[in-house]
Each structure stands twice: as structure tokens, then as C-alpha cells.
Design a protein around this nucleic acid. Structure first.
Length: 828
RNA sequence: GCCCUGGUGGCGGAAUCGGUAGACGCGACGGACUUAAAAUCCGUUCAGGCUCACCCCUGGUGCCAGUUCAAGUCUGGCUCAGGGCACCA
């Protein structure tokens, strides 16, 4: 007997226990069914789930279950991105080890995930901070190292003093640390890098292959890679024999307009290029630039400063001489660190020239509207003037012609440039995967032999040290022996950026228990690429670009056979409350535990999917939760009150023989299957799916309301509707559907049944409302048979009394008939 | 400054290929049931007008034009909001 009242906690506990004991989410590699890999971005174990997690994992879970009911062998794993700074901070504050803190968080959050009813294959769970995982992170690093894709160099790095570590460019936001918000400084250190720039072209070109990705993410990645076409041009220095300054430009067509040349303050030859008279001023300027933090440099924005070096360069095209300057608007990391300045056709150069009274020379003109470039630079296309042999040429052709001349005469070349820079992965922190390198006095840096992996984190460390990595306080970690000569050696003490750990975890799930390799080639090729990846937009650049890079690099290493990891990507919106992002500091968070406690997981799942499409932001409302809870109660009562009328093995008579009500309910059932199936298939529009659950439920209630008693025919049609509704809701309200399924006589799990099929002919109503317009305005609505022909529709329309009023005495110019929808009569 | 996304009732949001704008829900209001409350059920709910005969008329999807028998949907221009990038030569 179905209880009269819905007790979510009771049924959820029961079924969660059942699923746990039977390992319901377990996936087998040897299934005959086609594979489907559904993946959520794995969480950082910060302590407790927040609503963003709930949203993310519910979306993926519904997709996974939907696919399972469609006969796929679904892989739906979860794990923990468990290295990172908060664990270390907790160690400093509470004296707990980062490992203990992390483990406690994982076990709590794991309990919450189970409470949410998520169908995971827990046998494939991974945690990046465990030696059996980071062993392979280290191993992969070594493969990249051997391929020349990991290297060390002295570099000006972004330094966060509070975190006492280096940050990648991607982790500096508005000149501040992405994690702790403190101001980032420049510091020179020897650091490990991954050569992501080797893959710039591939990463860019393959974006076009990503048909299942949102355009916004693709464009962000394109901009980040930042490809441009141009030329390298070399300028001789008048005062110094044999000295040349190469510049990168996208505007070789403007070379005749150069009036000065700028090098970055950090330019390598800057001291040589400075005359004794200018030495002091240049030194001061450079010292100042060095001191300046990123944020100060940004805050000076468009006010450009610089000092002349005293020397001059010669334009090889026309022999003109112009002065050399240094200015911090030239960036040492981009291009060659030197810029040819054409103030008439570049806004930055224009501002600078105006400030320092440098000459202007127009070389590109719009023939219809020639400009003197007195007030602003002209950066649009035009015709070349004052440009010697190139006069009269359009500037696009001139780019090519001028570069060709430079190539021929030996002072230039074509050049493609990228903004993307190599990935700085060194972190002076404890809680990360140690970089598996040792330094021998005799043999230099050496990779740790693979049979000695993992290089484990030491436990004898003092977390309270400041200004250096806690790892340096270990007495056991540092000293080791050289794998080549057996002599004394010291270990690398930097750990890897956690983004490395998360750049390959989705591969590990395919073979999570493998003790001999990060994954077997066979299994990784079987399961990957991920069919549907779901996560927050905040990872649009960092994580997704790094993962793409890893996949491509590992393919080149022969470890796998595909070159893109994520076939389809869904970037879910944020969870807001009262219009702003949920955050502890704002005090507008909602604790998932409270929702589970008060309403149950099914209500939480239903609500988090209900109000907005997944890609948009979701505004949390307590009233909305209440509404979903009421709806589930309503559904429960429906089954409780109809239990005795449900025929589990129902048989449907032919439609033509059905009563009007039964005909309508049967059709409504097919309409619901069709609508819900297509809403999920098309961009996962769960908000409309849930509307359709409600519409279907309302229709069933309406049907029941008309009946005093139920005939056999009624019971069969009603049973078809009720069993179908239960299945359609199963991926969303996983516990309630399972519980009711068993109450009405279902065998096995409802989650292993087949998704309902609809009959196209029956997935529409028997009658339609025909809209009749006159001159495009609705004038009448008529109920007609859905199968009516065009001619019949036209007849119906013209026969309408209302329509006659509007057409009387007027000439009918034409009649447009849209079958199944409307008739529009055009009159004059 | 550049790039992306979006603008529909009091609110969240629906609306295949251009074809009834406002599905579904929240909130609000009115009613039924009840000694009462909760729960539940029924009804109303874009704006303005008309008669309040609850029938009908007019306007309406950020703004201004255009294409079309027909525009929330297509085209051009503008505007506002959110996000991303930001001296990349």
C-alpha cells in the first residue's frame, strides 16, 4: 500500500542504502552497449557542498540516467581535486595536517553526494592528493620533460606574497591574486614551465572542431591564444656597428611612417643602446618600472611614459634616421620586446608622440576623406602615400609587398605571433605534487627514475614558516642521491600547479585502479572523449585549455588516440540569491543539508533544475523550493489515490475505439513523452521538462476529476499515463520514482527500464484551435479536426460569422493557410 | 576601448521553420472545506478602454527604422545590463 503521505527522508534513506549495497552506479568495461561518458567538473573538497555543486551534479546525473534509460553503457564518475592552498591554510590555522583536513572534507562531501541521490561509480573515485594518483601526475610530467615540453628558466614571475607562491598569468586578475585578492608583484625566479606554446596553432585550429561547445567559450579561448599575422623587421643602429633591433609588427604597410622606435624597459640590449648622457635617466626609468607592481602599471592606464636612449635606428626602406626610446607600453614578453612607432596610424604611438612632441608622418590615406592625423591616428584601410615605390597601393596589398621586399633584401621576414605564453607550473607550496627532479652537483638536473615514483610529500614539515615553502623545513625530503652517479643530490622542492592534476583526471576514470600506468591505452580510447562535460563558466580558459593541451601532448606521446577530450560542453550558470552570487561574505548562502533535511533530495534536485535553463544564472528562492515540494506531494497523492486502479501490465485498445476522455489522455501521454524527450535532447532544457511534468500531472488530475468510477478501458489508459509519468520523472526525482515504481508492482529498478516511446501519430491532439486572421490580426478561433485539409480550413474560416463582418464589402486579395495553425485572409 | 551574452507581466521564465505572445511555476487576490489553522481543492491575475451583459475593442516582447499576408523571432542602426580581455604593436 502506498502511504497517504509523502515522507521523502524515509524513502530516500531506504533507496540510497539499496543503491549503495548493490553498487547501482557501477560501470563495466565489457558491456555490449554503446558507451556514454557523462562528467561533471570534479570538486575541490573545501568542506561542504554548495548550491553550485548541487546544480552541476544534478544536471549531469539527470543526463547520465536519461542516457542509461536509452540503452547506453554510461560512465558517470566523480573524484576530488584535492591539492591546493586551503588545506595548507587550515594546517596553519588549526595545526591539522593538510591530508587529514582534506580527508575529512572528502568524507563529508561524499556523504552529501550520496544524499543527493547521485548515480556514481564509486569504484572509480580518484583524489589527486593521493600517492596512487600523483604518482601518475609525476610520471606524466616526466614524459613531457623527456619530450622537451617541460623546462626550467629564470623568469619574471607573478608573485603573491600572502600565498608565498608564483602565479600563472591566468591566475592574476586585475593585478591581484585570484585566490586571496592581494596585490601581485614581479619577482625573478628560476621556474618550471610547460611548453603549451608549441601547441598554440593546434589548440587554435581545433577549436573549430568543437561543435558541441558554446560559442562564448570558443571565442574566449581564441582570444586567449591571440594569433596575429605580421612581420619581423630589423633596424640597424646608427651609433653601434653590427647591432640590429628586430621588431614585430602587424602593420608593415606603415613602415614609411616610422618616426621613433620603442624598446621595453627590460629589453636585453637596452644598456648597450643607451648613450652615456642618457644613462642616468634610463636607469631611473627602468628601476621605477621594475618596482611597479602589475596593478600600478595598470592604473597608469593610458598615460604613457618613456625616456629617449640617445641612440638612433635607420629605416632600411628609405634611409631615414629616428630616435630610440624606452617605454613601458612595450612589453618584453610579447613579440621581440621592441616596437616600431607610427604615430599617424596607431593610437598608442599617437598618444606617446603627442606627449613627447615626436614627429608625425601620414602614409595611409582614405582617398575619399584624406586626414592629416592631427587629432587622432587613422587606423582604417587606405591608400599608401609618402611611401616611395609603394605609393598608390592599397594598404592590404602593401603589407605583403613591403614584407616581401624586406625578405628579399635581408632585413625582414613574415611572422605569425601568438599571445599565449608558456604555462608556469612551479609553486613554492607544500600541498601539491612534488616535481620529480633531483639536482646533482656533477650531473645537473636529473629526472627521478620511474621506478622510484611517487616522490612522496614529506610529513616532517612546519607549516607556520613564512616567505618560503613549508617543504623546505623537512629534514628528510631534501637530501637524496643522484640517479646517474649515485652521488649527493638535492630534490626539487617546487610542487606542481594544481591545474596539472586536473588536466588529466578525466582520463584516469577510464582505468582508475591501474597500478602500472596512468591508464591503459585500450580503456582510455574506449571511454574517451567525454560525451558530455558539465561545469562552471569560470573554467572557460584555464582548465579547459590546459586539458586540451594535455590531451594533444599525450596523443603525441602515443598514450592515446584522440586529440580533443570533451566532445560536448555545457557551462552552467551561477546560483544566485537575491540577485547576487551566493557567498559566505554576503551571508546569502543556502545549505544543501538543510534542504535535504526539510524537503528531501528529490525536491532539491527538481528545484535546482526548474526555474532557469542550465546555461543561465539561477536565482534561488525559498518559495520556489516550497512549490516543488508541494508538486511532489501532489504527484505522490495521485499514485496513492489511484493505486487500486493501476493495472501494471496494461493493454491499450485501439485509439479509434476509445472514449473521448481516454483518447485525450492517451494523446496527452504521447505528447508528454515527445516534449520531454526532445527538451532533454535539445540543450538539456530541464526547466521546460519540469513544466511538462506539471502539465501532464494536471491533465491526469483533470481526467480523474471527470470520473466517478473506472471501467477496464479507463484503468488501462490511466495506467499507461501513470507509469509513463513515473518513468519520465525518474531521472529527476530518483527516489520517489523508484519507491512508487515498486509500490505499483514494478520489478527491478525503474532506472534500468527503457525510456518511454511515443507514437508520432498520437503525439498531437485530435482537435486543434484554428486561428483566423484578417490582415494579420486575429479575429476568430475555431475548433476543427486536426487532420483537416487546406481546403477545409479555408472553408471553415470563410464560414465564420465574425470573419464575414470583417470581409464584408471588401475585396479578398489572398488567403494564406498554414495547416494545423491558421488562416490569414488579406483584404483591401 | 575590443569581444561575447542577454533585455518578454509584480517575479523566474515559455513560445519548432517567422504563424494565437505570456506555457508552467512563484507571488498576490477571491472562494470552498474547517470551530479555527495548516494542508488541499476551485477561480482571477499584461496594460488601457468599453459596457462593467466577465463579451468585446485597442495597445504591448529595451528604442528607432525596414522586409513580410504575418516579426519576441529576420535585416540595419541605437541603447541599457551582465561577463570576458585589456598598452599584444
Amino acid at each position: 500500500m502506498i502511504k497517504e503521505q509523502y515522507f521523502p527522508q524515509e524513502i530516500e534513506k531506504k533507496w540510497q542504502k539499496e543503491w549503495e549495497e548493490t553498487k547501482f552506479g557501477k560501470t563495466y568495461d565489457d558491456s555490449e552497449k554503446p558507451k556514454y561518458y557523462a562528467l561533471s567538473m570534479f570538486p575541490y573538497p573545501s568542506g561542504k557542498l554548495h548550491m553550485g555543486h548541487v546544480r552541476n551534479y544534478t544536471i549531469t546525473d539527470v543526463i547520465a540516467r536519461f542516457k542509461k534509460m536509452h540503452g547506453f553503457n554510461v560512465l558517470h564518475p566523480i573524484g576530488w581535486d584535492s591539492f591546493g592552498l586551503p588545506a595548507e591554510n587550515a594546517a596553519i590555522q588549526h595545526g591539522e595536517s593538510p591530508e587529514k583536513w582534506t580527508d575529512e572534507n572528502i568524507s563529508y562531501m561524499k556523504m552529501q553526494l550520496k544524499r543527493l541521490g547521485l548515480m556514481y561509480d564509486w569504484d572509480r573515485e580518484v583524489a589527486t592528493c593521493k600517492p596512487d594518483y600523483y604518482k601518475w601526475t609525476q610520471w606524466l610530467f616526466l614524459q613531457l620533460y623527456k619530450k622537451g615540453l617541460a623546462y626550467k628558466k629564470e623568469a619574471a614571475v607573478n608573485w603573491c606574497d600572502k600565498c608565498a607562491t608564483v602565479l600563472a598569468n591566468e591566475q592574476v586578475i586585475d593585478g591581484k591574486c585570484w585566490r586571496c585578492d592581494s596585490v601581485v608583484e614581479k619577482k625573478y625566479l628560476s621556474q618550471w614551465f610547460l611548453k603549451i606554446t608549441d601547441y598554440a596553432e593546434q589548440l587554435l585550429a581545433d577549436i573549430d572542431k568543437l561543435e558541441g561547445w558554446p560559442d562564448s567559450v570558443k571565442i574566449m579561448q581564441k582570444n586567449w591564444i591571440g594569433k596575429s599575422h605580421g612581420a619581423i623587421l630589423k633596424f640597424k643602429v646608427k651609433e653601434i656597428d653590427g647591432m640590429e633591433i628586430p621588431v614585430y609588427t602587424t602593420r608593415p604597410d606603415t613602415v614609411y611612417g616610422i618616426t621613433y622606435l620603442v624598446v621595453a624597459p627590460e629589453y636585453k640590449d637596452i644598456e648597450k643602446l643607451t648613450t652615456p648622457e642618457q644613462k642616468q635617466a634610463v636607469e631611473e626609468y627602468r628601476a621605477n618600472a621594475r618596482k611597479m607592481t602589475e596593478i600600478e602599471r595598470l592604473s597608469t592606464e593610458r598615460v604613457k611614459t618613456g625616456v629617449p636612449l640617445g641612440t638612433h635606428a635607420i629605416n632600411p626602406f628609405n634611409g631615414e634616421e629616428f630616435p630610440l626610446w624606452t617605454a613601458d607600453y612595450a612589453l618584453v614578453e610579447y613579440g621581440t620586446g621592441a616596437v616600431m612607432a607610427v604615430p599617424t596610424h596607431d593610437e598608442r604611438d599617437f598618444d606617446f608622440a603627442k606627449k613627447y612632441n615626436l614627429p608625425l608622418k601620414v602614409v595611409i590615406q582614405n582617398p575619399e576623406n584624406p586626414s592629416e592625423c592631427k587629432d587622432s591616428a587613422y587606423t582604417e584601410p587606405g591608400i599608401l602615400v609618402n611611401s616611395g615605390e609603394f605609393n598608390g597601393m592599397d594598404n592590404e596589398s602593401a603589407k605583403k609587398a613591403i614584407t616581401e621586399k624586406a625578405v628579399k633584401e635581408g632585413y625582414g621576414e613574415f611572422k605569425t605571433q601568438y599571445r599565449l605564453r608558456d604555462w608556469l607550473i612551479s609553486r613554492q607550496r607544500y600541498w601539491g605534487a612534488p616535481i620529480p627532479i633531483v639536482y646533482c652537483e656533477k650531473c645537473g638536473p636529473q629526472p627521478v627514475p620511474e621506478d622510484q615514483l611517487p616522490v612522496k610529500l614529506p610529513e616532517d614539515v612546519d607549516f607556520k614558516v613564512t616567505g618560503k615553502s613549508p617543504i623546505l623545513t623537512s629534514k628528510t625530503f631534501l637530501e637524496t642521491t643522484c640517479p646517474v652517479c649515485g652521488g649527493k643530490a638535492t630534490r626539487e622542492t617546487d610542487t606542481m600547479d594544481t591545474f596539472i592534476c586536473s588536466s588529466w583526471y578525466y582520463l584516469r576514470y577510464s582505468d582508475a585502479k591501474n597500478a602500472n600506468a596512468p591508464f591503459s591505452k585500450e580503456l582510455v580510447n574506449k571511454w574517451l572523449p567525454v560525451d558530455q562535460y558539465v561545469g562552471g563558466i569560470e573554467h572557460a580558459i584555464l582548465h579547459l585549455l590546459y586539458s586540451r593541451f594535455f590531451t594533444k601532448a599525450l596523443k603525441d606521446l602515443g598514450l592515446l588516440d584522440f586529440d580533443e577530450p570533451f566532445k560536448n560542453l555545457l557551462t552552467q550558470g551561477m546560483v544566485l540569491k537575491d540577485g547576487s552570487k551566493m557567498s559566505k561574505s554576503k551571508g546569502n548562502t543556502v545549505d544543501p543539508d538543510e534542504i535535504f533535511e526539510n524537503y528531501g533530495a528529490d525536491t532539491a534536485r527538481l528545484f535546482i533544475l526548474s526555474d532557469s535553463p542550465p546555461a543561465r544564472d539561477f536565482d534561488w528562492s525559498d518559495a520556489g523550493v516550497e512549490g516543488c515540494y508541494k508538486f511532489l506531494n501532489r504527484v505522490w497523492r495521485l499514485y496513492a489515490s489511484m493505486q487500486e486502479n493501476i493495472v501494471f501490465d496494461y493493454k491499450l485498445p485501439d485509439v479509434s475505439a476509445l472514449s473521448k476522455e481516454n483518447n485525450a489522455l492517451l494523446r496527452q501521454t504521447h505528447i508528454s513523452i515527445k516534449g520531454i524527450t526532445s527538451d532533454i535532447s535539445n540543450e538539456f532544457q530541464f526547466n521546460t521538462v519540469i513544466s511538462k511534468y506539471r502539465e501532464f500531472t494536471n491533465a491526469i488530475y483533470e481526467y480523474i476529476g471527470k470520473k466517478d468510477s473506472f471501467s477496464d478501458e479507463d484503468k488501462n489508459v490511466l495506467s499507461f499515463a501513470l507509469i509513463t509519468l513515473l518513468k519520465l520523472m525518474a531521472p529527476t526525482t530518483v527516489h520517489m520514482s523508484e519507491a512508487l515504481w515498486h509500490e505499483i508492482g514494478g520489478r527491478g529498478s525503474i532506472h534500468e527500464t527503457q525510456w518511454p516511446q511515443y507514437d508520432e501519430k498520437l503525439a498531437k491532439t485530435a482537435d486543434i484551435t484554428l486561428v483566423v486572421q484578417v490582415n494579420g490580426k486575429v479575429k476568430d478561433k475555431i475548433e476543427v479536426d486536426a487532420e483537416s485539409s487546406k481546403e477545409d480550413l479555408e472553408k471553415h474560416a470563410l464560414a465564420s460569422e465574425k470573419i464575414k463582418q470583417f470581409t464584408a464589402g471588401k475585396e479578398i486579395v489572398k488567403i494564406i493557410v498554414v495547416p494545423g495553425r491558421l488562416v490569414n485572409i488579406v483584404v483591401k
